[in-house]
Computed example of a mutant assay.
Amino acid sequence: MDENFKLRIFTEPQQGATYDDLLRVAKTAENAGYDAFFRSDHYLKMGPVTGEPGPTDAWVTLAGLARETSGLRLGTLMTAGTFRLPGPLAIAVAQVDQMSGGRVELGLGTGWYAEEHTAYGIPFPSLKERFDRYAEQLEIITGLWGTPVGEAFAFDGEYYQLADSPALPKPVQRPRPPVLIGGTGKKRTPRLAARFADEFNLPFVDLDTAAAQYERVAEACREIGRDPGEVVRSAALLLCVGKDDAEIARRAEAIGREVDELRLNGLCGTPAEVADKIGTWRERTGITRLYLQVLDLSDLDHLELVAAEVAPQL
């Protein structure tokens, strides 16, 4: 595989997974040669599943994995800005970065799933307020990490005020852990990405939508004098790979999806078919990282098949 192109595993534990389930997936991913293990940050299941035994906290999970893996990068797609105050989140991510020896990445979004907020008593403001808070959160988190040791950080925003903060602890990665921003908003999202993102991610969209949004981010970078090439382009797509039609159908059935729909909207097919589709994405969009959404966390052979038979074709 092209050393500049990274395959990453992306999980959705709110659908029903324990920490031990995630640990098995992460260790399998590391041993198989994947670049990273990422997880969603949700507190409520989606769709016709029980979600049992219940949600696991993203940053508690990543702290545990930080101590039980050695080379795998670890992160979120995406931590909801509604879940945590920006100061404590900066502390938590910096600590997990220390615990991992500098392998953490922070994907941060506005939060969007109203029902999980209702279920667990989390305030859920209007979209405009969530975006306004999100902009302040990005400025605070990156500001805390970027403040030189021995100096104080202050911020006076509409929603958050910080005074005389020691801006500690510092993450291992300097100047900071990578910050991921994503989404299809046409105005504010590209502008925030141009200011704060090390990587811009698009989850589960078609090629045309992706290409147009990456260009909006590039234009927003140019408008503020930033080289668009500094922002890594990435995408997330659902994974369903099999050696033959029977294996593909079995894996689709295990996650309650139809093969034809997955072929259209995800990475579904034989290793050769999936490698071709990834090649098309790379050619059309310039992505250099791809997050493979794995929904059946018990099927570790799936990860090993892709590592053995898809990755070498890229």
Rank of each mutant, 00 (worst) to 15 (best):
R24Y: 07
R195N: 03
R67M: 14
A220K: 03
L138D: 10
P169E: 03
L262C: 09
G51C: 11
A235G: 02
F155W: 12
T61G: 06
E105N: 05
F196I: 04
Y34K: 06
G182V: 10
K186A: 11
E136I: 04
R84H: 08
D57N: 12
S100V: 02
T288R: 14
A29S: 03
G64Y: 08
R103C: 01
W145L: 00
A193P: 01
V49M: 09
R188W: 06
A210F: 09
T76C: 01
T147M: 02
Q15E: 06
D301Q: 12
V60Q: 12
N201K: 00
D156T: 11
D206I: 05
A26M: 01
E151W: 02
L262D: 09
I91R: 15
D276T: 14
A36C: 09
R257M: 08
A211R: 13
P166I: 13
A218C: 12
G71N: 15
G81C: 10
T142F: 08
G101K: 02
Y134H: 15
A220C: 01
T285Y: 00
Q213C: 05
T142M: 08
Y160P: 01
Q293R: 15
G111H: 10
R174Q: 13
L72I: 07
R176K: 10
E199F: 02
A94I: 07
E136R: 03
D132T: 00
R284T: 06
L65S: 03
D132L: 02
F5T: 06
R176C: 09
T82G: 00
A275T: 05
I122E: 07
G225C: 05
L85P: 10
C221V: 00
V60R: 05
L295M: 15
G269P: 11
L297Y: 03
D164I: 03
G51R: 14
K187R: 08
S70V: 05
E68C: 14
G64D: 11
L300E: 03
P175R: 06
T69C: 06
T28D: 07
E52P: 07
L85D: 08
N265M: 15
R282Q: 08
D245Q: 13
E219H: 07
A311D: 09
E283W: 10
R263K: 14
D41I: 07
F83M: 04
L314H: 10
D296R: 13
I141M: 03
E116D: 06
G102K: 05
G286D: 09
F10H: 09
A92L: 12
N31T: 12
R233A: 12
D296C: 12
S40T: 08
A119N: 01
V259C: 12
R24D: 14
E3C: 06
G109T: 06
P13D: 04
A163F: 11
E253W: 14
R257T: 07
W281T: 10
